[in-house]
Write a protein that binds this DNA or RNA. Structure first.
Lengths: 201, 201
DNA sequence: AAACACCCTATGATCGATCATTGGTTCTTT
DNA sequence: AAAGAACCAATGATCGATCATAGGGTGTTT
């Protein structure tokens, strides 16, 4: 066994959160998870702390970890931050348009096939490409710490939100980037906010 | 003893990083820290992971943690992200102008007294107020995860950067917020970027 | 001497056990 | 019965010990 123990545990916990095995507000008991996976308590703790950094769980001293209750307002906050980060990314660098087109194409296919998981995956990849193209590693790291993919899955399950099923929404963005349109950043921000819940405007 | 063991350890490590006890690139050995503080290895590991989330150290499996070598380019990346976050914050909410004035005043005093630490502290408080006023808890949490205060101390020590000694720089911002100037966000972004190293423009 | 295999130490990763806190339960006391 | 004290089980926090890997040293082969 090399060293991916806590990585494996984190993955199991993540899948449990996405699939709804643990409901929001429910406690996640370190020893139970440890016993089930036949590992010790320590790596479970570490995995839980990583999930805490993703804001998926919350914990208080001596009281343990519980699944963070996810409200539409929380989700909106995440979208607002994400929109700002992606706008910043668009200002800093130009994404590889071919990549964007490839992701958009796969998104089309997934939407046609009705595969929610694939839609989420390719949509996330589209946006990640933009952030990565900024050339700013800190920005990418912060963006990833938002846990976009997981939150998207959760919002679909908990709020019955639809994934951005119309890949067409992405086309204008690609064209703006290709044309070097200085308004691409703003477009991107609006695009992201458009999927946030309770858009107050 | 209640539960702040790992918090205490994190604080000790933080102070060591700021003070230069551990130089960039140097290894931080879990057991040595544990022995010195007369605690076990486990809480030291947890504290190290928190510092890793702040991007202050980096670690790879089975190879341990080392102080992240801090380059001017890294620092610039942090400033770019920070500038974007604060611009987003300014768009979302209006800070309490009295608070801003109070922080600016203290900044003046600290600058006059030549107290670097106080200058950093009050400058950070000024910007934090703006982010907190956004009303977006995720935004605040992400901003704090940038570790602005620590990075500022480090950049002063490693690059002999000057803190934003002229509190006057903050005055126009306060006035823009007070006037409800829609350009306040952009001003704030420029202000933050102005302190970043290697401004290429 | 270069290349390679083997061993050895330091140390990160993990474990099983123990300490300490929280929250509930029961037992008085009024 | 309500209020409080004492007890108890569950579990998070911490510990000391063990397992396993990385890197360096040493000897052997060519």
């Amino acid at each position: 066994m090399r060293s991916p123990l806590r990585d494996h545990i984190r993955q199991v916990l993540l899948e449990g959160l996405i699939s709804g095995r643990w409901e929001p507000g429910e406690r996640i008991v370190e020893r139970r998870v440890a016993a089930e996976l036949e590992v010790s308590q320590a790596p479970v703790r570490e995995a839980l702390r990583e999930l805490e950094a993703l804001r998926l769980i919350e914990s208080s001293p001596n009281k343990g970890a519980r699944v963070r209750p996810l409200t539409a307002a929380d989700l909106r906050e995440v979208y607002e931050v994400r929109a700002g980060l992606e706008e910043t990314a668009a200002r800093l660098g130009v994404p590889r348009v071919e990549e964007l087109r490839a992701h958009t194409g796969r998104l089309h296919v997934a939407a046609a096939a009705g595969s929610l998981d694939d839609q989420v995956r390719h949509s996330v990849a589209f946006h990640r490409e933009i952030v990565a193209a900024s050339g700013n590693a800190v920005l990418l790291s912060v963006w990833e710490s938002l846990g976009v993919e997981v939150w998207t899955h959760l919002s679909i399950r908990l709020f019955r939100m639809r994934p951005d099923e119309n890949a067409a929404d992405h086309e204008p963005l690609v064209e703006a980037f290709e044309a070097g349109d200085p308004g691409a950043g703003r477009m991107l921000r609006e695009h992201v906010l458009g999927y946030a819940p309770c858009d107050s405007r």
